[in-house]
């Protein structure tokens, strides 16, 4: 079976700057893969290219959803279309809908899986009502999975930091992705919260069957969690392999010069 995400020779130029330089990357169903690299290496740009926020200069982004098995090139599609196809992401600097409640944030995630239009909203026909009820219940279930149910009616901006990070994941899960892209999910978390996040990510993969690609700075998290690792520096892929190999790779150590990569 084809990899669910297959990126070939992805390139992104900003003016004269090549932020992503011919990067190849693939992910098989059910894997947890990490993309690491020093600050400014082009990791977030890579995410943006895959999720449609920016249009890549060259290369191919191919997806093969496990449900259909059909391969499709998604370069240049709009972000919302890509989300509809089954890719969902979180953001490095939290981007919740601050003045909406926790539940509503997750309900927004259900948006692409809902059908109600203007007329449905006004008339509240049985189908719309049923859909609305279903969405509320589904969203609540997702909150429970991420231990957020006690905040259900709280405004997102009033949540503690760690909970906000979890809510971003909950919101992305609500879109029913087959691949979840997490952009530095542990940023700003304390060790305790990071350990919990570790469990959460594994649980999402195991029980929900969602494949995961994450960008991370926290090396302990990356090493314990990921099955394969890609390392980028100055936009170029410099190493790829299992955590043990990466740890001892001299190129990687050079790139991280000074940064610790002990598990």
């Amino acid at each position: 079976m084809a990899p669910i995400l297959d990126v070939k020779k992805l390139r992104m130029d900003f003016g004269g700057l090549r932020a992503v330089n011919d990067v190849d990357l693939y992910i098989n169903e059910g894997e947890i893969v990490a993309l690491i690299g020093p600050n400014g290496a082009g990791k977030t740009t890579f995410f943006n290219c895959i999720t449609g926020v920016t249009k890549p200069t060259a290369g191919d982004v191919m997806i093969t959803p496990p449900s259909s098995g059909k391969t499709e090139r998604i370069n240049g599609l709009k972000p919302n279309t890509i989300t509809e196809r089954g890719l969902a992401r979180t953001f490095q600097n939290i981007r919740l809908f601050q003045n909406m409640t926790v539940l509503e944030n997750v309900m927004i995630g259900r948006h692409p899986r809902m059908k109600a239009g203007v007329l449905g909203a006004i008339l509240r026909d049985p189908r719309t009502k049923a859909e609305e009820k279903q969405v509320i219940e589904d969203s609540y279930e997702i909150l429970k999975k991420l231990n957020l149910e006690m905040f259900v009616n709280e405004l997102a901006k009033n949540l503690p930091y760690g909970a906000q990070r979890r809510l971003e994941i909950a919101r992305a899960m609500a879109t029913e992705p087959f691949l979840l892209l997490l952009d530095e999910p542990a940023a700003g978390m304390n060790p305790q919260e990071t350990r919990e996040l570790d469990d959460t990510i594994v649980r999402i993969r195991d029980t929900e069957g969602i494949t995961i690609l994450l960008i991370e700075h926290d090396m302990s998290l990356v090493m314990s969690l990921s099955e394969r690792i890609y390392v980028v520096d100055y936009g170029k892929l410099i190493a790829t392999g299992v955590p043990e190999d990466i740890k001892s790779n001299p190129e990687v150590i050079k790139a991280y010069l000074g940064e610790e990569i002990n598990a």
Partner: peptide, 28 residues
């Protein structure tokens, strides 16, 4: 009724954060 519907929530999401809204599958 609009406010408290799929469309109404999409409006508020658009007000709060357009990019995040698009990433959640809303056609802005």
């Amino acid at each position: 009724r609009l406010e408290d519907s799929r469309l109404g929530r999409a409006w508020v999401a658009m007000r709060e954060d357009e990019i995040a809204g698009e990433a959640m599958g809303i056609d802005m």
